[in-house]
Every structure is written in structure tokens, then in C-alpha cells.
Design a protein around this nucleic acid. Structure first.
Lengths: 354, 354
DNA sequence: CATCTCACTGTATGCGCTTACAGTTTGTGA
DNA sequence: TCACAAACTGTAAGCGCATACAGTGAGATG
């Protein structure tokens, strides 16, 4: 890392001007073959890698897209320097009742979709997770680095979003807000839950328990709405509603205390439903014979639970891709009207509610 | 997005020079309070977000760290524009035998660790996944954008790595190569597998089947070495070795054909072991009563399998963090000797081999 | 009241690249 | 052989910011 070579170094060694160097790298066909060879030789010899900063500055675009989502809350441990550790092996016995960390597979998949789509379209992807107070600084920082920004709904205050939107296009994920000027990409929450609920009814359930998520979740609100729509006109069905918090632990806790049992427990997300399955297992209650259970999200764990979880699958990878597509579409045509894209969902029937 | 405001616009509106604007943003204390207020007002009013490109160019550093890992192979479908889709709901019945996509939870977790650590240290994180031929272009591109680059072992040819390493520091993850000049961060593969195998032996196994991974995986080689070390001097133990490919499907396939059954099947990763569990379930063979099964990695799915999987847990989040730490350490002191950091692993005993 | 400090603020330069434009070479037809 | 177009290459002007250095003015000092 003595000193990174620049276009000037390459130009000098190749005996050409810096413009030719730039052309060889950006539009090789516009340069005579012989010149091109000389330049490429110099590039290899010097270990030249062009500075994206300089290029971005000159070209007025960075070719980077940013993705911002709610943070893994600050991890307390592991503050120490891991300098020169030397391995080690310990052994533990893992009790089945220990709570697994709440892995946000959701964002992992969205991220994966965004990553694929961004590079395919020639953009690099920058990721940032918001953590409490630093959120504003992070969003501002990343906004200065990218050509477009995708944010998950509810993670960034509107005021801040409006501020950065004056510089770059912004697309909001997982929300169908109509009151703002941003592009939106979301999934078909209400119809999905409606279809799920209708399946449950068709399977014969006449008493339902709905475990909702936190009140401030727009996704949850839409799902609840879909649930209610399915029940519209089914006066003979008994319905009860409790609020969970989208977590497995809370789902388990709620399900441990349910008495009497309804015919079916409809959960507004998979984690909650998995918690319910845990509880039923512990109470030796058979699913689906004694009670049916459904979830929403389609996380991988639901495929391996016992019994396997019937759920509404969200196309999370597609969500990430769609966000990038929306962003590049707007970059291509900034004057376009704001769009709201709703992705289809899929009811996946497995053993917990066949 | 009419035209993003610049320092000049802010300076003009605040009635100061651009130097003062810059100072307010970089070292607020060096500016008189009254001036600072005026500048901040102008920033808010104009919706000013500083250009990271310009800053990076002037400051000669980008404050971004790059992470490169083997790609999700090119996803064929979903080429179409998702323009103005309008939701929809379909229903499918999910057959338990359908192959779940091979989710690389491994990288997700490494990424998460890197993300946390990078932002904590004031760096943004740029991610890139390598896809076949475009790999070289991507690595070069990202190398021009960042102050340091973390790559997963075996994903980038040495020559390319050496090339970019002339510009920025590089750290290699999940490999303990001694022949190059890069910093390395890896996990304690061999001792971990050795401990796992010793546990299997202590549990009474006298005939073992080892299902290895692909030949070109350095991780796999180290694990196999650990396995052999555990057997050293146990001449009475019968051992057989087959090669898998780290996939669940292949593990299942192998396990369906095993006859006679050994006392234990030791797998070099969790996916393979989960496939083995699938097969045993289908063959109505009891795990661990008829055969014990162990994995390696500690992916979340192993906690929810049936029976739950005994495995060696790698600290994947820590791996990501350690990579960032190694990189920032080298940025602070480029002359430092190359380091090789080995993270500890943990044998996690669950029902598949108690 | 002149001089000196100190705390700020402004001026000017350059970071490494892209690109409009001008200049040069090469090839072509008359 | 000469004029002219086509193909290529060089020149020069920024892109938006950080920062060394040079002011500027107010208060402190003698």
C-alpha cells in the first residue's frame, strides 16, 4: 500500500494521456487495440485499481444503492479485541427450552434479493442497520454515498426520509402508505391472511384464536384486517384476539395458558406460530387433530418444525429485488409518478393445518 | 432531485465560506456557535447531504469496508420487470420431500457480524457476492470503493487478491493459509471435529461413517484431519469415509443407501447431517438409538430438527466481527506483521448424539 | 494607545477521474 | 497526389469537498 497508483501513473507508463487510460477502462472499443494493450499492461504492472470516489465525483453518480433496515440491537458482548486468540474448544449440553436468538431471517432474505438484483444491474450494494440514536447519522451518511436508498417501513422518521429524498430517490419496503411521495414495495398481507383464514374455516374450524403482533406494525394491521374480512358474515364462528409481539417466546407463553382450546390458532407471523407449536408439544396436545395452527411469513424454520407449519409465504427475496428494480426505474426516469408495488403471497399448506 | 445542493449552496445561504460549512460538519467545536447555527439552518433548509465521493476523494479514504463472498448462484427466474403488479394469492400443498433451497445461513451470519462491527467503528459496509465470470470485475470494482476488503477463502483467485492488495488491506476469512501475506481469520476446525469425534467414541460408538465435504474445501480438510486425529490409536474402531458435497440432498441420498448401519455417522457440516436425519426418518431408523448423527456449523435449523442435532458450533457472527477488527487494525498500522486469528468453537450436545 | 494573542474565518489548492472539445493521424476517393 | 472524412488521441475543465495557510478582529497586555 505504498501509494496507490493513479491514472497519471498508468498513463505515464503506457505513454498515453490520462484520457486514453480512462477510455480503455470505460469504453474499450473506442481505443485502438495497440494502445489498449499498452494501457492494460501498465494497469497490471502497477496494480492499478481506479478510485470509485474520483469516478463518482466526476461522473456524478456512484453506482451504489443503499439498503437500510432496523438494526440488530446493539450487541453488548464481544467488545474486546480478539487479538491473537488461539482457538479453543468447549462443550455444552443444549437444553431444548433455551430460547434461540431471534434471527431476523426476514431481512437476510430481503438483503439477498437486493444483493442479487443490484449487482445484476451494475450497482454495488451498501447495507446499514439502524441502531437507536445513531440512526439519523447513519442514514445521512449512507445517503451521501449512494444513488438510491431502500428503507424498511417504520425504521426511519418521515422527516429524515424527506430530507434525504431531496438528494436521492427513496423506496419504502413493506408498507403501502399513500400519503407520501415515495415509491413503495410491499406484499399482499390482507388478502393473504384472508385466504389463510378461509382455509382454516373450510377445514372445519368454528372457534378461532387470533394472535396478533405489535400494534404499531403496519403489516400486522393489514393481516388482522384480512382475518376479519374472512370472517365477515360468519356470525356462527367464535373469535378471540390476543396481542403477541411477533416473538416465539411470547407465542409459546400465550399458548401455554389457553383454556379452553379453540379449533384453530391463527398467528400473524411464523415465529409466534412456532412458539404455539412448542407449547402444544409440551402440553401433549395434538396439532392439527386437537387444534390447528397457522403462521405468516414462510420462514425456513416452519418447514422443519413438527408438525410442519402451514403458513402464508411472503416472497422476501423478491421484495429485495423489487426494491432495487423500483429504484433503478426511478433513476432512469425521475419524473415518473410514485408507484406502489404489491407482491403476491402464497398459502402453503403443511401438516399443522392441512 | 432537481439538483443536489452542495457546500457552495449552503455557504451562500449561510453567508459564510465553504470552509466553514465543512468545519461545521466535521469539527463543530472549531466554529463559533452563531456561525454553526446559521450553517445548520441552511443545511436543513436546503436538504443538504454531503457527497461521500467528494469527501472521500479529498480525504483520501472512504470509510467503507467491503465484504466479498461466494454468490448465490445466478437466479434464473424473475427476470421480468415487476412493474405495477397487483398482488394475488395462490395456494399450494407443500410436500415434505421437496428440497428446501440451500440457504446460506452461514454467510448471513458472518455478514451480520461484519455489519455490526463496521458501523460501530464508523465504517460503512459494502457487500458483494461473486458470481462466476463477473467475479473479477466485481472484486476490482469494490476494491476501488473501499478502504479494506474481507473475502471468504477460495472465492477469489490469489492473483486477483494480490492485485487489489496493493491498494487496500485484505483479510481472508475461514482459512489458515500461511503462504501469503494477508491477514486471516478462521475457526478451530480440526480441534472442534476432534472433540466431537471423541465425544462420539465416548458415547460408545465402535463403527463410524464420516461424510466429508467437497475436496477443495479447506474447512473440510481441516475437519477431516481432526476426525482422524481423534481416531489415532483407536485401532479397534471401524471407520469408513464417503464424500458428500455439503448439501442436505446429498446427505440424504448417501444415508438412504447405507447398509449395514454404523454406530455413528459423523458429518462435516450440518446440512449433510440434516439430510442424514431426513433419511433415517424415512427409513424408520431411530436416532440416536440405532445410529448417532453429528454435524458441524451450528446452523439454526439444527436446533429445530427432529431429533435435534448435535454439532460443533462456529461463531459465525464473531467471524464477521473479527474480520472487520483485523481490517481496522491494519488500517491503523499498515506495517504490522500479517496475523492469523483462530476463533474457538463449541461442541453442542443435543439428542442426535447425547 | 500601540502591540500582541488567540479564536475564528476565508482563500486557494488538489484529491483522481470523466468528458466535451480540439487536435492529430489514417484511410479514401477523385 | 490532394482534399476530406473517419478514427483516434490529447487538452483542459470541472465534479464537491478537506485542509494548509493566510488573513481578520476582538480582547489582553504594556
Amino acid at each position: 500500500m505504498a501509494k496507490a497508483p493513479t491514472v497519471y501513473d498508468v498513463a505515464e507508463r503506457a505513454g498515453v494521456s490520462i484520457a486514453s487510460v480512462s477510455r480503455v477502462l470505460r469504453s474499450p472499443d473506442s481505443v485502438k487495440e495497440q494502445t489498449r494493450e499498452r494501457v492494460l499492461e501498465a494497469v497490471r504492472h502497477l496494480g492499478y485499481v481506479p478510485s470509485a470516489n474520483a469516478r463518482g465525483l466526476a461522473a456524478r453518480r456512484t453506482n451504489v444503492i443503499g439498503l437500510f433496515f432496523p438494526g440488530h440491537d446493539d450487541v453488548a458482548g464481544s467488545e474486546g479485541q480478539l487479538v491473537a486468540a488461539s482457538g479453543g474448544v468447549t462443550t455444552v449440553r443444549d437444553d431444548p427450552t433455551t430460547e434461540p436468538e431471534t434471527n431476523n431471517f426476514y431481512f437476510d432474505e430481503v438483503l439477498r434479493g437486493a444483493e442479487i438484483e443490484a449487482w445484476r444491474r451494475g450497482f454495488a450494494l451498501m447495507v446499514a442497520a439502524g441502531r437507536g440514536a445513531s440512526r439519523e447519522a447513519i442514514v445521512n451518511d449512507i445517503a451521501g454515498r449512494v444513488d438510491g436508498l431502500a428503507v424498511l417501513a417504520r425504521t426511519v422518521p418521515d422527516e429524515l426520509l424527506t430530507h434525504v429524498a431531496r438528494r436521492i430517490p427513496v423506496v419504502v419496503l413493506a408498507a403501502t402508505r399513500g400519503t407520501d411521495a415515495f415509491d413503495h414495495v410491499s406484499v399482499n398481507n390482507a388478502p393473504g391472511m384472508r385466504a389463510m383464514t378461509e382455509h382454516v374455516l373450510k377445514a372445519g374450524a368454528r372457534s378461532l384464536l387470533y394472535i396478533a403482533g405489535p400494534e404499531d406494525s403496519p403489516d400486522d394491521a393489514e393481516r388482522l384486517q384480512g382475518f376479519r374480512a374472512a370472517l365477515d358474515g360468519n356470525a356462527e364462528v367464535a373469535v378471540e384476539l390476543v396481542r403477541g409481539d411477533f416473538s416465539r417466546g411470547r407465542g409459546r407463553e400465550i399458548a401455554l395458558g389457553i383454556d379452553p382450546l379453540p379449533d384453530a390458532i391463527v398467528c400473524s407471523n411464523d415465529q409466534t406460530a412456532l412458539g404455539v407449536l412448542d407449547a402444544m408439544g409440551r402440553r401433549s396436545i395434538s396439532v392439527p387433530d386437537d387444534v390447528m395452527v397457522t403462521g405468516f411469513d414462510g420462514i425456513a424454520a416452519g418447514r422443519h418444525s413438527s408438525p410442519r407449519l402451514t403458513t402464508v409465504h411472503q416472497p422476501m427475496v423478491e421484495l429485495g429485488r423489487a426494491a432495487i428494480q423500483a429504484l433503478t426505474a426511478r433513476l432512469d426516469d425521475p419524473s415518473m409518478d410514485a408507484r406502489s408495488l404489491v407482491l403476491p403471497v402464497q398459502v402453503v399448506l403443511r401438516e399443522s393445518c392441512p
